[in-house]
Design a protein around this nucleic acid. Structure first.
Lengths: 303, 303
DNA sequence: TTCTTAATTCCACAAAATGGAATACTGACG
DNA sequence: CGTCAGTATTCCATTTTGTGGAATTAAGAA
């Protein structure tokens, strides 16, 4: 029998009871168990804890001293578990590690965290913005946000939104080079390309049913917002996630083109590690994120 | 799974190892056990303790904090058990409750305790001299000494000596009333009787094969030494344990009579509670007592 | 004395832990 | 880019351990 803590608890209960029988009742077990446990504890200690007859028990001097120390330890142990269990007093205390792409993170995740940061100052938000999918162990991620398919089944993912991809440019650029009507028209226009950091290659543009890799882009970057800036500057056409460009479209600073070829929107996933318990603070952030992303009124993903 | 202490220890070991596999090796168990234990602990706490992939583990921030507190608790627990186990430093610390008859206790037990009291000042000797057999729970007895049969099988008893019973008187008294030659002669002589405190009745004198209750004793007491004093005063004949009278016989102050009817000697038992462990201090006293009583050179039980 | 009650032991059964085998997956090395 | 070695995890049959009913022993009360 290894269980020292349980032994201590049984002993402490018995010591504060008038009989093993009563202690057993308090602990919801049988007198046999008490008897065995005390005997085991005595064996481990090499000391008698109770003088006992078949009729009554009386704690030894050693037992009384041991009881005091035991009670200390027991309360410490229970404190450790109770206090560590993100308790009622500070349910959101602790760290929440979040990973998201730069674009979504800055623009959409950050604002959502404000109420939590305000209301729960004991909660530490650790937001790692990185477009590469480095949801590795070292990153210590509690919640992740990704656009596009997730291969990793160690996470439980919820599809929180659908992100259309839109080909956009400034009205001025469209006027200059004429609006493309076919995919093939793009070959004649200045376009941007997005570099995949991992492979170093340009992502193909996606269209309804097929893809098209820009053969000679005018501008490339690994950062969607840099690409957006290039488009806003009127340099190029770019295929960019809807939530980045919709505000500018609404202001008339950008116009979408080739909308009839628009690809099926990419899923936006909010996910968290599948295994292990989910502390309240993590669940809170998770739920907030999924709900808010689904709320198109606040974060427009389509036009 | 109740065993919180073991969970803590497994967790602590794992946290200080580079892998569950290594921790398992340290604990002499299998990685499965570590994995399960950590999972269980995480479940109880509602918090992730390790970020882990199939390839590596990394402790969480919460885990690191929890580790510090766990280590405290673990060392306290082990201190409690190690320190409480009457350790190498003070192997004889603690109380030893001894019960003995007044006569044996004062004259024979007390001198034996001197070396222990001298060498182990941390040892508390609690010597209860009572002739009644009150080896009850309340008396908190670790070692007992009794003359005569023990009915109580909750104690492990060692027969340490044989105590003859001798009928003695002063030479003067013998000269006055003539030496008894037969048991029946005693009816004519002044004799003492011993009262059994419990029953209030006079103990019968024991002889070889039969007993004889003094019909009209001249003196009765419940204390053997008082009885001895009465005999020494030349008042009465008394049947008294050998170890009390032998010194006086040697000095010629008393003479034994009716020696051919002497009963089989009574066994002297040293005993201790059968159940539970035997702390070193108790074993020490127990062994000292049994050995010394067996040593007739130091404590004469026969002449 | 007898009766009641409590601690303990015994034993058969039930519950839980254990570790081997298989699986899933990561990171490193050709 | 595929392969390999190494690790955490799950599954499951086996073993170990805990459990409480029944019987035993004993102490205190009537």
């Amino acid at each position: 029998m290894y269980d020292r803590f349980r032994l201590l608890k049984i002993f402490a209960t018995a010591a504060q009871s008038s009989s093993f029988r009563e202690a057993a009742f308090q602990l919801g077990t049988s007198p046999q168990t008490i008897s065995r446990a005390v005997k085991e504890l005595e064996g481990q200690l090499g000391e008698l804890l109770f003088h006992r007859s078949t009729r009554q028990i009386q704690i030894t001097q050693f037992g009384a001293k041991f009881l005091r120390e035991s009670n200390n330890l027991i309360s410490e142990m229970e404190l450790l578990f109770e206090h560590s269990r993100s308790s009622e007093t500070e349910p959101y205390a602790g760290r929440v590690g979040i990973t998201a792409p730069h674009s979504v993170g800055r623009g959409h995740v950050l604002p959502l965290l404000e109420p939590l940061i305000r209301k729960a100052p004991e909660c530490l938000i650790d937001l790692r913005l990185e477009d590469e999918v480095t949801d590795t162990v070292g990153a210590q991620i509690d919640i992740g946000i990704r656009v596009g398919a997730l291969r990793d089944n160690r996470f439980v993912a919820r599809q929180a939104a659908l992100v259309p991809l839109m080909v956009v440019a400034t009205p001025e650029l469209v006027r200059q080079v004429a609006e493309p009507r076919m995919i093939s028209d793009l070959i004649q226009k200045p376009v941007s390309g997005r570099i995949d950091r991992k492979s170093g290659r340009i992502w193909p543009w996606r269209f309804n049913g097929f893809t098209h890799t820009p053969p000679s882009p005018r501008f490339v970057s690994d950062d969607p917002e840099a690409e957006l800036q290039a488009v806003l500057n009127g340099w190029v056409f770019g295929q960019i996630a809807a939530f980045l460009v919709i505000p500018y479209i609404r202001e008339g600073l950008l116009v979408p083109v080739l909308r009839q070829f628009e690809p099926p929107p990419l899923p936006l996933y909010v996910y968290r590690p599948q295994r292990g318990p989910v502390p309240p603070r993590v669940r809170k952030v998770f739920d907030t994120l999924t709900e808010s992303f689904a709320d198109e009124g606040r974060f427009p993903f389509r036009i």
